[in-house]
């Protein structure tokens, strides 16, 4: 039973991270119907920025949770700035072009960012300092759930609630929902669509950066390539839950996290990534709209 619980909780941890990244995909897709391939790279840049800032702060003599908080904040700011810039450069000029163009542009951007980080930093794995504090009250359950897991799950839950509130109750959230429903109509009633799209990219990137910092401290090492696989998996999670739906992304992330952890825990650990992709293909065959998604009817 302990083994089961342990796997269940590590699935929950992993699923929370997928959900954080998947939210960025699903929000962008909901608004401009584009698979933002560069999103995984934004997550990677978030993790790298945090690592760099944390190292600089450590050499300056700081230590403890202050480093984590500062590095996290800078990472979120930078990831948002990158998300914003990527949209302005690679997607905005292509609004209204055929479907294939922005997708290819997004892949180009993803390759560019990966190699930019690789050339500017290193292609090796860098050890990431464990910045997350040890929580004393979890000592008794540490063999099942460590404090890292707890912090990841708790942070994700807080972020989700904040995001839901933002989308439900603020003016910007309302504008986002309106743009997702019908961009032209939103424009007609006075929504500044360009600003909404920028805001979506900024929020999505910020969430990805939070995910990046958390998982980097959890796993303990990063390199320029982590965004690629994480990006595909998060996209899988978004599709799994029904792309465009925010609760769907969270659910999809959790389902994917559990699938992976149970599959590696009970079957084999060599094919961890293959299980995720197999799940994606299965879902697309059986239920293309996803778990919570609505099947869309194409009208002329």
């Amino acid at each position: 039973m302990d083994y089961f619980l342990e796997i269940f909780l590590s699935g929950l941890t992993r699923g929370s991270i997928y959900a954080l990244i998947a939210l960025g995909y699903t929000m962008v897709y909901g608004i401009i119907e584009l698979i933002n391939f560069a999103h995984g790279e934004i997550y990677m840049i978030g993790a790298f920025t945090a690592l760099i800032i944390a190292s600089v702060l450590t050499t300056l003599g700081m230590s403890g949770p202050a480093v984590l908080i500062l590095a996290g904040i800078v990472a979120v700011i930078y990831a948002s700035a990158y998300g914003f810039t990527v949209e302005k450069i690679a997607y905005k000029p292509l609004r209204g072009a055929s479907r294939l163009s922005p997708l290819i542009s997004a892949i180009g951007m993803s390759i560019f960012l990966q190699n930019y980080v690789m050339l500017a930093q290193t292609s090796d794995f860098l050890p990431f300092p464990n910045l997350l504090p040890e929580l004393p009250f979890l000592e008794s359950t540490a063999h099942i759930m460590g404090s890292t897991d707890f912090i990841i799950i708790a942070t994700t839950a807080v972020v989700m609630v904040a995001l839901t509130l933002l989308i439900k109750f603020t003016r910007m959230g309302k504008a986002m929902r309106a743009t997702a429903q019908d961009r032209n109509m939103a424009m007609l009633v006075g929504v500044n669509v360009n600003r909404v799209i920028s805001a979506t990219f900024i929020i999505g990137s910020a969430l990805a950066a939070i995910g990046g910092v958390l998982i980097a401290s959890h796993i303990g090492r990063i390199n320029f390539y982590i965004g690629f696989i994480a990006g595909i998996k998060a996209f899988t999670a978004a599709v799994l839950g029904g792309i465009g739906s925010i609760p769907g992304a969270v659910l999809g992330g959790l389902v994917l996290g559990w699938t992976e952890c149970f599959a590696t825990g009970y079957v084999s650990s060599d094919y961890e990534d293959a299980f995720a992709f197999a799940l994606l293909v299965l879902i697309l065959i059986l239920r293309p709209a996803g778990i919570l998604g609505k099947a869309s009817v194409q009208k002329v």
Partner: peptide
């Protein structure tokens, strides 16, 4: 996969490529 919309195809083929390599 081909019954689906174009963007899904991109991701599924990407996933398939990775599965084959793995």
């Amino acid at each position: 996969v081909l019954r689906l919309r174009g963007d899904y195809l991109a991701i599924v083929t990407l996933g398939f490529g990775e599965i084959v390599r793995l």
